[in-house]
Computed example of a mutant assay.
Amino acid sequence: MKGPLFYSKILLFGEYGIIKDSRGLSIPYNFFKGALKKSDHLEGKALESNKNLNQFAVYLQEVQTESPDLVSFDLDSLKKDIREGMFFDSSIPQGYGVGSSGALVAAIYDRYGKDKITVLENLTREKLLRLKAIFGKMESFFHGKSSGLDPLNSYLSLPILINSQDNIESTSIPTQNPDGKGAVFLLDSGTVGETAPMVQIFMEQMKHEGFRKVLKDQFIRYTDACVEDFISGNVKSLFGNIKKLSNVVLNHFSPMIPKEFHQLWKQGIESNSYYLKLCGSGGGGYILGFTEDLDQAREALKGHRLEVVYNF
């Protein structure tokens, strides 16, 4: 048995903001992927994955009991496959903000979901919201609370435009320019980030009126502008807004930025050779970078590994 491949995702814009109804844009990232497989001899990561799937199956039974109108699964087949050595074979790094649990959730729903919404049907807004709700419930097993966007992106393998919590749509983004000098890239922080503690910090900060004002007047405003610029291909305006967004994150979201990257972050803004932003919840994992000149950014970030995600 080898299941279809499910890809990682990158939330280009909208981290934290989408909790408070900013816009967001999430794209599939085919460099990392995962699939359900079986083996007679489980060891190492495969054995660990199999044990996790066992716990996940117990959780899905609870979800089905609590929300029978939302989703139901072929639990007998799922449990049988787990007993027979099923695991999720994935190259998606965990705790890096690129959707490792999202791909697994999408794979399980795809194989074991009953009366499932398929990617081939006409995906109305209602269907997208229903899928998002199902995936949010499923992925909560891994994060305590989930928006459901990561699995949705992985399941559909399409860019998702988030207009607000209850207004999402699949969208198209401008075709990449393989010869372009500009790029979106991933920068490896070298440490794993945990989602739950970062979200906890954010929620604590939200208790302060000053932070809420910054979030509304600056963070969400620049995020929305970046989404609009990216989708419409307005690169000049995009970089102006990303610089402002990067600055707001450095000044007000510093606990989410690994300490050793504060200086690099500042350096990018001051030199204009690149701008950094959070990839997912932060705290480690990948950091997203935007540059109008990739060679210049590589030079400025010597000693760090850059993975190009998109070329302008």
Results as ranks from 00 to 15, higher is better:
Lys9Asn: 11
Ile10Gly: 11
Glu15Leu: 02
Gly17Thr: 12
Ile19Gln: 02
Ser22His: 02
Gly24Arg: 02
Ser26Tyr: 00
Pro28Gln: 08
Tyr29Cys: 09
Tyr29Ala: 03
Asn30Gln: 14
Lys37Ser: 12
Ser39Asp: 15
His41Val: 10
Leu42Gln: 07
Glu43Asp: 13
Glu43Phe: 11
Gly44Asp: 14
Lys45Pro: 01
Leu47Tyr: 09
Ser49Ala: 07
Ser49Gly: 04
Asn50Asp: 06
Lys51Cys: 07
Asn52Cys: 02
Leu53Thr: 08
Gln55Tyr: 10
Val58Ser: 09
Val58Met: 02
Gln61Tyr: 04
Gln61Thr: 12
Gln61Ala: 11
Val63Thr: 04
Glu66Cys: 05
Pro68Cys: 09
Leu75Gly: 12
Asp76Met: 03
Ile82Glu: 09
Arg83Pro: 00
Glu84Tyr: 11
Glu84Cys: 03
Asp89Ile: 06
Tyr96Ile: 10
Ser101Glu: 04
Gly102Asn: 03
Leu104His: 06
Val105Met: 06
Ala106His: 06
Ala107Asn: 04
Tyr112Trp: 07
Lys114Val: 13
Asp115Met: 07
Glu121Ile: 10
Leu123Ser: 08
Thr124Tyr: 03
Lys127Met: 11
Ala133Val: 00
Gly136Asp: 06
Glu139Trp: 05
Ser140Val: 01
Lys145Pro: 00
Gly148Val: 01
Gly148Asp: 03
Asp150Phe: 03
Asn153Arg: 00
Asn153Gly: 15
Tyr155Ser: 05
Ser157Met: 01
Pro159Leu: 07
Pro159Phe: 06
Leu161Tyr: 14
Leu161Ser: 09
Leu161Arg: 13
Asn163Leu: 13
Asn167Ala: 11
Ile168Trp: 04
Ile173Thr: 03
Pro174Gln: 06
Gln176Lys: 10
Lys181Trp: 00
Gly182Cys: 01
Val184Glu: 01
Asp188Val: 12
Gly190Ile: 09
Gly193His: 06
Ala196Phe: 08
Pro197Trp: 07
Gln200Ala: 13
Phe202Glu: 08
Gln205Leu: 12
His208Pro: 00
Glu209Ala: 10
Gly210Ala: 15
Phe211Lys: 05
Phe211Arg: 08
Lys216Val: 08
Asp217Asn: 12
Gln218Thr: 00
Thr223Leu: 02
Cys226Ala: 15
Glu228Met: 07
Asn234Arg: 13
Asn241Pro: 01
Lys244Cys: 05
Ser246Met: 04
Val248Thr: 14
Val249Met: 12
Val249Gly: 00
His252Val: 01
His252Asn: 14
His252Cys: 03
Phe253Arg: 05
Phe253Ala: 03
Ser254Ile: 05
Gln263Cys: 01
Leu264Val: 13
Lys266Tyr: 08
Gln267Leu: 12
Ser273Arg: 15
Ser273Lys: 15
Tyr275Thr: 00
Leu278Asn: 10
Cys279Asn: 14
Gly280Lys: 03
Gly280Asn: 04
Leu288Val: 03
Phe290Cys: 10
Thr291Lys: 09
Asp295Val: 02
Asp295Pro: 00
Gln296Ala: 13
Arg298Trp: 00
Leu301Val: 10
His304Ser: 07
Arg305Ser: 13
Glu307Trp: 10
Asn311Leu: 14
Phe312Gly: 10
